[in-house]
Amino acid sequence: MLKKTLALAVLATVATAGAAEARDTIRIVGSSTVYPFSTVVAENFGKSTSFKTPVIESTGSGGGIKLFCAGVGTEHPDIVNASRRMKKSEFETCDKNGVKDIVEVRVGYDGIVIANAKAAPAFDVTREQLFMALAKEVPQGDKWVANPYKKWSDINPSLPNEEIEVLGPPPTSGTRDAFTELVMDAACEKLPAAKALKDAGDDKTLKQKCQSVREDGAYIEAGENDNLIVQKLGANQTAVGIFGYSFLEENADKIKGAKVDGKEPTFDNISSGAYPVSRPLQFYVKKAHIGTIPGIQEYLNEFTADKAWGPEGYLADKGLIPMPDAERAKYKEAATKLKTLTAGDL
């Protein structure tokens, strides 16, 4: 009986190993913002080549990078999409787990929009007002107090006389990371109370004050599914949502984008840098998997072709803001020659 049990265990192990070795489909995880773009590329790739259509999972940038950095081998993802750059600490985790050679490919730009229902009043807000609406603590004089603002008009009479209710991404999302950097940090660091902390060298407290989001119901984490936020905005005319520009583009019949610091979230304003809340989009490739998992290099070729990511490409039709020619050439070369990332690049 023991021999039979051992034999079955060996067979199961061999079968599992065989299944892992036999994986012939590219596996991609990561950003919900990059997900729609990579899905279109994957579908075109599957139709136009002899390779299988890649399997893509929307896990959020942070969650995806964690999966990507867990190790090398067919049980781990081949590519991770990210709506922010990989952090140095994440690169070091990758390295520690044997993920040594990583190729970074920037694919374009995206704006983070503040949007509300099409039928709701137009929203025109500054980054400082967004900070005051969403921060866990705000300065009053030289002290920090629990956020007292209940309505937008409490912050400024020019804002709607409506309860503050913001639907946004969770901490695992690259959109949340980028929003924190481009809105919360950027606005907070201009405040006298924040400058005092910086002058005192208290960077830990400064980061905590600037980046902590209120937990009293004014900010609602809506998961990694940005389409869900769009649906909720349709049902709640007073709510505001935070998500990538591509979702605004796809749902222009249901929602509209707010001006931030006087600039509208348009294709031209994002591509020119005039709109203040924009960020690069990219993906990372596990070089060790190229040649083991069929089609990875060919998938990179499809993504970095002008017909996909160029100014007239099919991704621009989906809301991706194309990079300037020189920048596209740089990352095309990275994808073709498989240039690896170093810690100094981050």
Rank of each mutant, 00 (worst) to 15 (best):
I255W: 08
E224Q: 15
V260W: 08
K263F: 02
I220E: 07
Q211L: 11
N225I: 06
Q211M: 05
E221W: 08
G217R: 03
I242H: 02
E250T: 11
P265K: 10
A235E: 15
S246H: 12
G262A: 06
K254H: 07
L233F: 07
V260H: 07
K256T: 07
S212K: 01
Y219C: 05
A239Q: 09
G234H: 00
L233Q: 10
K263L: 02
L228Q: 13
D216T: 10
S212W: 00
S212N: 11
I242G: 01
D216C: 09
F247A: 01
E249H: 15
D261N: 14
G223W: 04
C210G: 04
T266Y: 02
A258G: 10
G262D: 02
K209D: 01
E215G: 01
Q208G: 00
V240N: 05
E250A: 15
F243G: 01
D226P: 00
G217T: 03
D216H: 09
Y219V: 06
D253V: 07
A252K: 15
K256R: 10
L248I: 09
G262C: 09
K256P: 11
G241Q: 06
K263N: 02
A239D: 10
N225S: 11
K263C: 00
E224P: 00
D226S: 15
L248W: 04
G257K: 06
V230G: 02
A258V: 07
G241A: 04
I255H: 10
K232S: 12
K259Y: 01
Q231S: 13
A222S: 15
G241V: 04
E264S: 13
V213H: 03
A218D: 03
P265L: 11
P265T: 09
Y245C: 03
E250Y: 00
E221L: 11
S246M: 12
K263Y: 03
Q208R: 11
Q237K: 15
Y219S: 07
G241W: 08
N227F: 08
S246P: 12
Q231A: 13
T238P: 00
G217N: 05
K232F: 07
T266F: 07
S246A: 14
D253I: 10
A239N: 09
G257I: 02
N227G: 15
G241I: 07
A235Y: 11
T238N: 14
I255M: 04
E249M: 13
K259G: 00
L248S: 03
Q208M: 12
Y245P: 07
A235S: 14
A239E: 03
Q237G: 01
C210Q: 13
I255F: 02
G262H: 03
A222W: 06
I229C: 05
P265D: 08
S246G: 05
A222E: 14
G223F: 06
G262E: 01
E264L: 13
G244R: 04
S212P: 07
K254E: 11
N236C: 01
E250N: 14
A252E: 12
L233Y: 05
I242R: 06
G234Y: 03
A239L: 08
K232E: 13
K232Q: 14
K259C: 05
G262R: 05
T238L: 10
K263I: 15
R214L: 10
G223V: 10
A235N: 13
D226R: 00
G234V: 07
R214Y: 00
